[in-house]
Write a protein that binds this DNA or RNA. Structure first.
Length: 473
RNA sequence: GGCCCUAUCGUCUAACGGUUAGGACACCGGGUUUUCAAUCCGAUAAUCAGGGUUCGAUUCCCUGUAGGGUCACCA
């Protein structure tokens, strides 16, 4: 059907990117990449009032963090450059002239005050405001100082097809003479995106559902311009926290980059976003990017809106953490760890502990930093050495047994596995594991909550282990 | 208010018109266990309401209700 799939992500630079925007970008990217197509980044900077400085850089940074790369865009150029709408004004003028020549565009003769009055009146009469009810009988000549309006060629009921929603239609109320070019010379979204998508040969417009109501206007403009519309792919809305659950201050509307700062893995966030409005129809939920590209299909995109379930993101992040290669994991966690704890010996503990937390930051916030302190001399409370109802005498005896047994292990054999089997052997002989293992763990860590004694022993080595046990005695 | 979209466990969702309505997150209970966890097993939990169509509706149609979108010189 298509020679090549071309999708685009076209944000306006009005601030940071939140989950909603990134989800749209992800779906467009997935579809382009899956089909070996082209993914375009286009900046819709036609509203100079709302533009926020630094947004473009921020958007680029966000997309890059997730690994969404583009083939054409403001920074990399491309065959249809420029990719900033503010630099494509000539293009819009060209298309505007076509419409003027066909009699489908005219300068808006009204002042803002007059328009407001029309709108107010419509509002009072509880009917939708339609500009076309006030369309001037005769069109003046557009000199560029006034807004240029589209003259809707035909008021009719439109029926169209959406790749996700299926058959859609809208009443004639959805049709109106909207503005093509504002009095400041910049085009409106309604006009600019249609021109650009045509020029950039976009095959699929992937966007959220707030544009459904405007689609008849677009359709009318496509017709007037003689353009065959691309495929419309409407994404379901993401509902703001309307439920009774709000876990911490993490709400769905925050800057996507903050998730990175908090320790979420880009791949986990991508996985989470992909499942926000799409599902593969199987019971699989954890996907790598590669797997997503394999199974992603437009026809399985959801129609109904969904709330963001951040608890699920935590779970997903945990699952992705577990899959991380050792080296990546170390790099990841070290970036959060104070320098004094950035010790390679801690890697086994990191592996043991990491699967219990959704991300590194949460892990540290939970007071897990203590667990890393086992590389240092512990300070402890004698009383806590005693296990439950056991007697100090029995504990002393057990620690002595352990010391004796561990002394027989050579420096080289002092591995986690060997320490474990040695300790377990004693524990089985004594008949009460807790009585043996608890004091050893506590003597080695000095912590109420810590990694298990085998790991600690293997990390601190034979000498340090024995020294700590002696000290405990 | 007009137009449009949507509606399955608390949440995200699955189910050619025929299933004991399945899974996941969360919650609860239990096993394992040297601590906190993790892990394993298990339980509770849903088709918005009312009418049709049909031998049979979660599924199709209508109405109502609820939620969302839109009605800008914003995108």
């Amino acid at each position: 059907m298509y020679n090549k799939v071309v999708t685009r992500f076209a944000p306006s630079p009005t601030g940071f990117m939140h989950i909603g925007g990134v989800r749209t970008a992800l779906f467009a990217w997935l579809w382009a990449r899956k089909n070996n197509g082209v993914f375009i980044l286009r900046i819709e900077d036609t509203d100079k009032e709302r533009e926020v400085k630094g947004s473009i850089e921020h958007i680029i940074k966000s997309l890059k963090w997730l690994g969404l790369n583009w083939d054409e865009g403001p920074d990399v150029g491309g065959p249809h450059k420029p990719y900033l709408q503010s630099e494509r004004l000539d293009s819009y003028k060209k298309y505007a002239q076509i419409l003027i020549d066909k009699g489908f565009a005219y300068p808006d003769p009204y002042t803002k005050e007059e328009l407001d009055a029309f709108r107010k009146k419509a509002d009072e009469e509880r009917r939708p405001f339609l500009y076309r009810d006030h369309r001037p009988k005769e069109f003046g000549v557009w000199d560029g100082t006034k807004a240029l309006r589209f003259k809707t060629p035909e008021i009719k009921i439109y029926h169209w097809n959406d790749a996700v929603r299926g058959a859609l239609s809208a009443g004639v109320e959805a049709l109106d003479d909207f503005i093509l070019i504002k009095s400041d010379g910049y085009p409106t979204y309604n006009f600019a995106h249609i021109v650009d998508d045509q020029e950039m040969k976009v095959t699929h417009i992937i966007r959220a559902d707030e544009f459904i109501s405007s689609t008849p206007k677009f359709l009318s403009l496509y017709e007037a311009l003689g353009i065959t519309p691309p495929v419309f792919v409407t994404l379901p809305p993401i509902l703001a926290d309307g439920g009774n659950k709000k876990l911490s201050k993490r709400d769905g509307a925050k800057d996507i980059l903050e998730y990175g700062e908090e320790g979420y893995l880009p791949e986990a966030v991508m996985n989470f976003l992909a499942l926000l409005g799409w599902n593969p129809g199987t019971e699989k939920e954890i996907f790598t990017v590669k797997e997503l590209l394999k199974v992603f299909e437009i026809n399985r995109i959801q129609v109904s809106g969904a709330q963001v379930n951040l608890e699920k993101l935590d779970w997903m992040n945990k699952e992705h953490m577990k899959k991380l290669p050792a080296e990546e994991m170390q790099k990841n966690i070290f970036s959060y760890l104070p320098k004094e704890f950035q010790n390679e010996k801690l890697v086994p503990i990191i592996f043991e502990r990491i699967s219990k937390w959704s991300d590194v930051k949460v892990m540290l916030e939970a007071g897990e930093l203590d667990c890393f302190s086992v590389v240092k001399q512990p300070k402890y409370d004698k009383i806590k050495l005693v296990y439950k109802n056991s007697s100090p005498e029995r504990i002393t005896k057990n620690i002595k047994l352990v010391i004796k047994a561990l002394e027989k292990l050579s420096e080289n054999d002092f591995t986690m596995e060997n320490v474990k089997s040695t300790l377990m052997l004693i524990a089985e002989m004594e008949g009460n594991r807790g009585e043996v293992l608890h004091p050893v763990r506590y003597a080695l860590s000095g912590l109420d909550k810590s990694p298990d004694p085998f790991i600690i022993a293997s990390i601190i080595g034979k000498n340090e282990t024995l020294s700590r046990l002696q000290k405990a005695l």
